[in-house]
Amino acid sequence: MKAPLVSVVIVGYNAKHFLPECLGSLIKGAYKNIEILYVDNGSTDGTSEYINKYYPQIILIKNSKNVGFSPAHEGILAKVKGDAVLLLNTDTIVEGNLLKELIKVLYERKDTGAVQPKVLMYPDKNKIDSIGAFFLNNGLLYHFGYEKDYNRSIYNKPMEIFSTKGAVMLIKKEVLDKVSFPKYGNHRASIFDQDYFTAFEDTDLAMRIWLAGYRILYVPSAKTYHIGGGTVMKMIRSFIIFHGEKNRIATYIKNLSPKYLFKVLPRFLIMLQLEFFAYLFIRRRLDVALAVQRAILWNIFHLNEILKKRHYVQTRIRVVDDESFIPYLTKKVRLSYYYYLVIGLGGYKD
């Protein structure tokens, strides 16, 4: 098989300090049949000038302001030429064989739609940042392996995963064409929901890939290091919580079948109320507690728009029932998981 062209799409905001290692490691990699598209999301730190000077081969797309992570991908599908698309964060450092290993697994079967490598923390390279996530029946995700030693055998087996880590994932272009949102109003076709400024867009995309009848796999032989929090660290906690919970609710309304929606959504809303009281009375963060309630209200006020997107997903993207993938990608966790979710998952035994 001829080596597929991979279009690497990177969105960055004031991320110039990450670029020497991110772009440097990518270009030095063993897989050479790539094109790189960099979306400068309104940076003021000289990012565009740096890329033009040191990486003139990169296709640079400049936004006049920071429109958010998901909106920055609007119209990107019309610009890429590759057979596969690698979505990559600026705060990553890729190993030389990353694309070779991912491409090999991605094209082994026609029904494989996307793959994720082993994502390790940086500079603590022995700990896992992500090897994918599984579904919990209360709407939360089980971050299998997070903060654990990556050398353990249970973390080095290829497996199907419910959701990928948005920091680095490789997807067939033909799959993205099938699961992306179409042009509507003033919006161009987009990989991600344009109402998601940040957070949970990766899980939303992963669910659409599964609904379209494709598999998502974790590839342990491919490695990437993730510094983490490149842009998110600059955001205030209430902002992150608002967008994360808002997007999670909208994701389930759009993608789940009625059976699963009526089972999962009430449980998740209960979890949100527990989160609200925890921030209000334990952490004494009124701003964050209110952000949880604002996330619910946003979905109520925008329900009509969400239902229009749901109609598109259910009638134009879905080709399989939830029963074909959700049950075996749902895990059960002990009660202690929720405790460690707050203080650090490194202490939870998978």
Score class of each variant (00 low, 15 high):
Lys53His: 09
Asn52Lys: 15
Pro20Lys: 06
Asp111Pro: 02
Ala114Ser: 14
Tyr55Met: 01
Val232Glu: 13
Arg188Ser: 14
Leu77Met: 12
Pro20Gln: 08
Lys28Gln: 14
Glu275Thr: 15
Tyr252Met: 14
Leu290Pro: 05
His226Pro: 04
Gly68Met: 01
Ile317Gln: 04
Ser163Phe: 06
Leu170Gln: 03
Ser336Ile: 05
Tyr340Thr: 04
Glu101Thr: 10
Leu290Gln: 12
Asp204Val: 03
Ile103Ala: 03
Phe200Asn: 05
Arg188Tyr: 14
Val119Phe: 07
Tyr339Thr: 14
Thr231Trp: 01
Tyr338Gly: 01
Phe197Asn: 04
Ser25Glu: 10
Glu323Cys: 02
Gln116Ser: 11
Ile236Met: 13
Tyr50Asp: 00
Arg248Pro: 04
Gly113Pro: 07
Glu174Asp: 15
Ala250Gly: 08
Pro56Lys: 07
Asn14Pro: 03
Ala289Ser: 14
Asn138Asp: 12
Pro182Phe: 07
Glu147Pro: 01
Leu102Glu: 15
Leu303Lys: 08
Val342Asn: 14
Tyr54Cys: 11
Ser64Pro: 05
Ala250Gln: 08
Arg310Ala: 02
Ile216Asp: 09
Glu74Val: 04
Leu211His: 13
Ala295Glu: 10
Phe242Asp: 06
Arg215Tyr: 09
Phe162Cys: 12
Asp204Trp: 12
Arg285Glu: 12
Asp111Asn: 11
Leu5Ile: 00
Asn66Gly: 10
Phe277Met: 13
Ile161Leu: 08
Asn126Gln: 12
Lys104Thr: 10
Lys62Met: 15
Leu341Ile: 00
Lys53Pro: 04
Lys127Gln: 09
Leu256Cys: 11
Thr44His: 13
Gly145Cys: 05
Leu274Gly: 13
Asn97Glu: 14
Leu99Gly: 05
Ile282Cys: 02
Thr90Cys: 14
Tyr146Glu: 04
Val168Ile: 12
Tyr339Ala: 13
Asp129Ser: 12
Lys165His: 13
Asn52Pro: 05
Phe325Leu: 02
Lys246Met: 06
Ile296Asn: 00
Ser238Met: 10
Ile10Asp: 06
Gln194Glu: 10
Ile249Cys: 06
Gln194Ser: 08
Arg284Gln: 08
Met207Gly: 12
Glu95Trp: 11
Arg208Gln: 00
Asp195Arg: 07
Asn33Ala: 12
Lys308Asn: 01
Arg310Asn: 05
Asp202Trp: 11
Asp287Gln: 07
Gly145Asn: 06
Ala212Val: 08
Asn151Thr: 10
Ser130Gly: 07
Cys22Glu: 13
Gly139Pro: 09
Ala278Glu: 15
Leu341Val: 00
Leu106Phe: 03
Thr47Leu: 13
Gly139Asn: 05
Lys28Tyr: 09
Ile34Leu: 04
Glu21Gly: 09
Phe301Ser: 01
Ile296Phe: 01
Thr330Ile: 10
Val288Leu: 11
Arg267Asn: 05
Glu323Tyr: 06
Lys332Tyr: 06
Leu5Gln: 01
Ile209Phe: 04
Leu211Gln: 15
Arg237Trp: 02
Leu256Thr: 09
Leu98Pro: 02
Phe281Trp: 00
Phe325Val: 02
Phe18Leu: 06
Pro258Met: 06
Thr203Cys: 15
Leu26Trp: 07
Phe239Thr: 11
